[in-house]
Nucleic acid binder design. Sequence first.
DNA 1: AGTTGTCAAGCTAGT
DNA 2: ACTAGCTTGACAACT
Length: 296
Amino acid sequence: MRIGYPCINRSVGCTASTTFRLASYSSVRLETCIRNNISCLRKILQFNAGNGLLFFRIPSGLVPFASHPICTYGWAGRFAKDFREIGRYIRENNMRISMHPDQFVLLNSTDEEVVLRSVSELKYHAKVLDLMRLGRDAKIQLHVGGVYGDKESALERFAERYARLPRQVRKRLVVENDGHLFSLSDCLKLHSLTGIPVLFDSFHHSLNNNGESMRNAILLAEATWAVQDGPLMCDYSSQQRGAKRGTHASTINLPDFAAFVSQAKGIELDIMLEIKDKEKSAIKAARLISEAKPGN
DNA sequence: AGTTGTCAAGCTAGT
DNA sequence: ACTAGCTTGACAACT
């Protein structure tokens, strides 16, 4: 079981997703920005390795404007060697990687333009992982998208468009249950239509479910992952005490986390902690896991 | 130096 | 009609 956190590390003193305004775009500006982001990504991965955190979500903003028409700069060639080195570091340390395109990526939109932009953005995400030469277990996670007034046809549109995606994208794409529209059972329906693996978000599941127990839900999601896809990926968060329902906790509640892990007993999975204090909570969780392991 | 309006992109639910 | 929320605030113009 690998433990990780998404995108931002507040200890290393840099971010791997610095950006700039479209209005001030230039290839020089972009190159500088990418160089800084890549260098920070290295630092974060080293920090993670040193702290037993082997699961990380690479921010979508690593290469700003990568899928925008303004970007004609050959960043993939220019930074090919850097991506390869980072990929080697990831593999040598047995790390797991995910990416999560932002809310504008909607495969099932009723607007064809939105779909086209979404596919470009997905290709960019796949390109980053391919440049790192990561295996098929490095995943791109997406929500189903909007309902557009009819959930069944929204699911069908996703399935149709998934089938037509380039292989490089399709082999990495996984779908995640969300907290108010598409539940685990909706995602499982999508899996039966397409074969797409289902990334299980435990917090979303607690907000939006069809009565499945936590353990049963984990088992159902786990069954959608083929061997080549790697172990089941899970997003984990807990409710901030006293805050509005759906608010992520500011720091990890270890007893809650231990209870979740016990629900997954005997199931191989990697867990990403969507908790506001990021690596701080992840380190606590990873320590809990390694102390619980016999022989450690 | 610190504050604040705005930033490529979409949709839903709550107010 | 407007805004918060979503995987993640930060850029850049202004005071």
